[in-house]
Simulated scan of single mutants.
Amino acid sequence: MAELETRELEYFVAVAEELHFGRAAACLAIAQPALSKAIRRLESRLGVRLLERSSRHVALTPAGEALLHHGRHALDAVGAAAEKARRAGDRQAHLRLVIKPGGDANLLSGILAAYAGRPDARRVDILFGGATDRADHVRAGRADVALLYAPFDDMTGLDHEILLVEGRVAILPPDHRLATRSQVTLADLARETLPRWKGVRWTGAPEAAGQGPEVTDAAEALHMIRLGRTIAILPRSLAQPMHPDLVYRPVTDAPDSELVLAWSRDDRRRMVASFVAAAVEAAGTTRGRG
């Protein structure tokens, strides 16, 4: 069976993404004839045509589309393996935690204090990610642990511990028809316009709800609510602090949200296990006080 070399795959993915040999060659910092020769050699070894090309046009064949899809994942896996190997061999490595701003339910200070008190504690570097890319940081080896919200974040390839289980709230303009109620249900919200969360596959919104503006985080959603373009259903902690111009009502039958600490399923480093244990301990202490 023909084998692929990482460099060949990098060359092909560059051409497939640019659909232009000249631009791909510039990105790769190689000569265009050398790149063209490498792609022809790859097609010959695989026995399939990957690209349809003319003097003015480059397009992917079905085989090329398949190789692009799987090739991206393969290159990501190679990069993650190298990064994780370097991290595993670095005894002085800092622990890297990725969060989204405001996405710690006020638990982070207690978690860091609990971890700092452990004899094997390392320095913790805080990284900020977007609404949907924090799990990717862990899978790619750019972060060791992440604070995520289940079931909204993609947990593929990750293990996790639950730190907090919380209800969800509807956020409404003050003149909304439901604003005078003390609580609402999903049926009450079934025909409301709700935002489309970029990169989020499941939000728990009613199926009949209308599709509102696309947003990437809670701050954008709140802005659109104030403009009267949408309402939103959020985990209670992500709705904090409450905006004085908006109304917050518990959604009594909405699925609970879980704030979790996640790490790579194959990561067995003591540094990570120690941080996870400290986080679970700290979160339990915080809940006990509540």
Rank of each mutant, 00 (worst) to 15 (best):
G141Y: 00
R226N: 07
A254P: 04
A208H: 14
G79S: 09
A278I: 04
G110K: 01
S54V: 03
G102E: 06
E258C: 12
D267N: 08
Q240F: 07
R201F: 05
Y11V: 03
P235W: 02
L127K: 05
I111L: 06
L163H: 05
D159N: 14
A81E: 06
I162P: 00
M1I: 11
A29L: 13
E281P: 01
E10T: 12
V280R: 15
R249N: 01
I39R: 10
R287P: 02
E8I: 02
A81C: 04
P235A: 15
D76E: 15
T285S: 14
T203D: 07
A88G: 00
G130I: 02
S182Y: 01
L194Q: 11
G47K: 09
A279H: 03
G157T: 02
R7H: 08
H137I: 02
D76Y: 10
R45D: 08
G110A: 13
S44A: 12
A113S: 09
S36L: 13
G22M: 09
T216L: 09
R96E: 06
L178I: 01
D217C: 14
K37D: 09
R45L: 06
L60H: 08
D175K: 14
K37V: 10
G129F: 10
G103N: 06
A209P: 07
R40S: 13
E52C: 04
P244R: 14
I111K: 03
R123C: 08
R45E: 14
G117I: 08
I111S: 06
M242T: 11
R122Y: 03
V98R: 00
M242I: 03
H94G: 02
L234H: 07
F128V: 12
I231S: 13
A278Q: 07
L51D: 13
L127Q: 07
L46K: 04
E43Q: 15
